[in-house]
Nucleic acid binder design. Structure first.
Length: 245
DNA sequence: TGCCATGTTAAACT
DNA sequence: GAGTTTAACATGGC
């Protein structure tokens, strides 16, 4: 169950199959899997929560959504949930309960790779311009917007806002310049902390606001509230986080 | 046990 | 037809 960093970890598991030929396909997709057989997996690219499998003659987009899961090597989960299985000479990759789509070259060529907060070409300046183009946008929505900050999700949103001391319903135009810069740097910083803690299986131990009841700084209550157009739960401290609007 | 959730899409509304 | 809301997906943790 994925935000961007989880997908970065998934990609590491998929790397051994780059350069290998697909010898068998499995699963149930809304396109014909048959023509994938025999193709080489040329590359794997990520944009936030999306994974692109670049084949010789097709591009497949995988999105794990909320409940999706994957395995590499051998498939062990119930076949009825298998959306896509690709078998290579050295093992397979299996994606369950997720979205699997064929992407045409045209739309693939228009992807803004610089929007991925974990990418080495992440472009916070460009993200800032996109944010400023939506002055009334609430920061809780900004941090869920996959066109602006691809890979950020509800956990990252809440933890970033706690770190920078800003309440989720603050708006972009009311945010002091320094806080905006803060937001852009912490969304990347926290994503890499997320990656580190996730790989150590200690992610939830490090939550300061998300799913918390007591503020670790002031000892006061953490407020839980559905916020923004994205209508996702926000967790925040009214004392240690300022509302700018 | 039952409820809720790291997310997006498409159907079903207005 | 547009914009908006709801349901679906179906697992795992508390």
């Amino acid at each position: 169950m994925p935000e961007g960093p989880t997908i970065v970890l998934m990609k590491e598991q998929l790397l051994p199959y780059i350069g290998k030929d697909i010898i068998l396909t499995q699963g149930k997709t809304n396109f014909d899997l048959h023509h994938l057989k025999g193709q080489t997996l040329k590359d794997i690219r990520l944009l936030g929560k999306q994974t692109f499998l670049i084949l010789e003659n097709a591009i497949i987009r995988i999105h794990l959504l909320m409940f999706g899961s994957y395995e590499t090597g051998q498939a062990t989960k119930p076949a009825k949930n298998l959306k896509l299985g690709l078998i290579f000479e050295n093992g397979g990759m299996f994606f369950y309960t997720c979205s699997v789509k064929l992407i045409d070259k045209e739309s693939f060529s228009h992807i803004d790779w610089e929007a991925d907060v974990m990418s080495k070409i992440w472009n916070p300046q460009k993200a800032k311009e996109k944010l400023l183009a939506h002055p009334n946008m609430m920061v809780c929505d900004a941090l869920m917007d996959q066109d602006i900050m691809a890979g950020s999700g509800n956990i990252i949103k809440n933890e970033v806002l706690f770190r920078i001391g800003v309440q989720p319903e603050s708006t972009i135009d009311a945010l002091p310049q320094a806080k905006l810069e803060n937001l852009l740097s912490e969304v990347r910083n926290y994503s890499f902390d997320f990656l580190k803690w996730k790989s150590q299986n200690t992610l939830s131990k490090h939550w300061q606001a998300y799913q918390q009841k007591i503020c670790p700084q002031c000892g006061g209550p953490i407020t839980k509230k559905i916020t923004g157009h994205s209508k996702r739960n926000s967790f925040f401290c009214k004392t240690d986080q300022e509302l700018y609007n």
